[in-house]
Simulated assay, not measured.
Amino acid sequence: MISFVPYASFRFFIVAGILMIPIIVSGLIGKRMRLYNDFVTVVMIFLIFYGQPAQFVSIIIFVLWQTGLVKGYLELRKRNNRSVYFYVATALAVFPLFIVKLSADVPALNFFGFLGISYVSFRTIEMIMDIRDGLIKSVSVAEFLRFVLFFPTISSGPIDRYSRFKKDQAVVPTRKEYKELLYLGLNKIFLGFLYKYIIGYLVHEYWMGSSMMNGNSLFSIWMYMYAYSMYLFFDFAGYSQFAIGLSYLMGIRTPENFNKPFLSRNIKDFWNRWHMSLSFWFRDFIYMRFVYTMIKKKRLKNRYLISDLGLALNFMIMGFWHGFLLQYIIYGIYHAVVFISFNRFEQFNKKHSIWSKDNRWVHALSVLITFHVICFSFLIFSGRLNFLW
């Protein structure tokens, strides 16, 4: 069966491009054909999953499950905003993803799952949390499906928010606005080709594939760290550019995912630049909710301790989200330790001013140090150090 993985072959771009033609034409005259857009989504979802029957069945079951959860919890929320309803709904929404992640270590559970289940799960979990907060008061099945199954971002994100997506769906761009979206979208798609299929390919084939990467010498591991970090960025950023570009062509302003992350001056700055839609999702729905709950219920009084515990929880969950393998768990712990340590350093620096942010040499050194701290985390993530444990 020929693969139809999103953005992984020119066949995908050719089919998507042909289907986009009526959407582009209607956009250029200031119109939007909603039914045709829905038709394109159905066709693309079918093509992506039809070659993998198990995945095709899984996504149908998943969508039915999540639709029932969101609609059911919405009705319960209207009657009574009990915490137990919220926690049960959230747990049930996470359950399919938990099974898929656990299946890496428990092969017997490897009967369910589909490409992009992580990113689709984030969308439904966010909707449940927004319902809890009263931000979503009603949602039709059609609106839910358009958001959850938006095919440009289904496999690898970026992770959009329902309220933002719904606003773009409701407002039809003017001819002038769509011309700008079309221009930006095509530029992003070509940038994606540069990132993934030229730079990413060259790094993977001629740097990571070099003989000097063989063995477990300090030099080979050190060089692999740089190579893998570059490959991870250009490959993933390429995918993100494709997804954002195709979204723009459909009149949807999917949020950016990367903003020159290797120029970050500290770990906090890095997580405001790297995989931003994921970082902001965890910040808003894990870290901030934990901090708010601790303060509201007065479980702890020390705000620094609350923040540290929130960061530890945030990055531990992020590590487990990538998978239950040890390398991902250590990756999460590593980032939690680095982030908490940086917060402590900032507190110390406010009192003693040993590190000036305005000095250009200090800034350059900060970028250099942060770059290596991040690259080492990617080395852990890659599994290259698994021989150590």
Rank of each mutant, 00 (worst) to 15 (best):
I136A: 10
L194I: 11
R11H: 13
N81T: 14
F285S: 12
L182V: 07
Y206T: 11
S382L: 12
L181A: 06
R344C: 14
R79Y: 15
V120S: 05
S163A: 14
W361P: 08
F339H: 15
A8E: 09
I317C: 08
R11V: 06
V70R: 05
F165P: 02
F219G: 04
N359D: 14
M250P: 10
R11F: 10
F219E: 12
L249V: 04
N349D: 07
G251H: 05
S156F: 00
F270M: 01
V203P: 05
F378K: 09
K260E: 10
F62S: 09
N259K: 15
R283L: 13
I354C: 15
G332V: 08
R161Q: 08
I333A: 13
F236M: 11
G238M: 03
P261Y: 01
V25R: 04
E126P: 08
V15A: 08
W207K: 06
W361T: 10
F262M: 05
W321I: 05
S211R: 09
A16Q: 11
G51N: 13
G192A: 00
A108E: 08
W389Y: 15
D284K: 03
L202P: 12
Y197C: 15
F114A: 03
N80I: 11
D160Y: 04
V84M: 09
M208K: 03
T67P: 05
Y178S: 11
L19A: 02
V106R: 05
E126F: 08
R146Y: 07
L35W: 15
S103R: 06
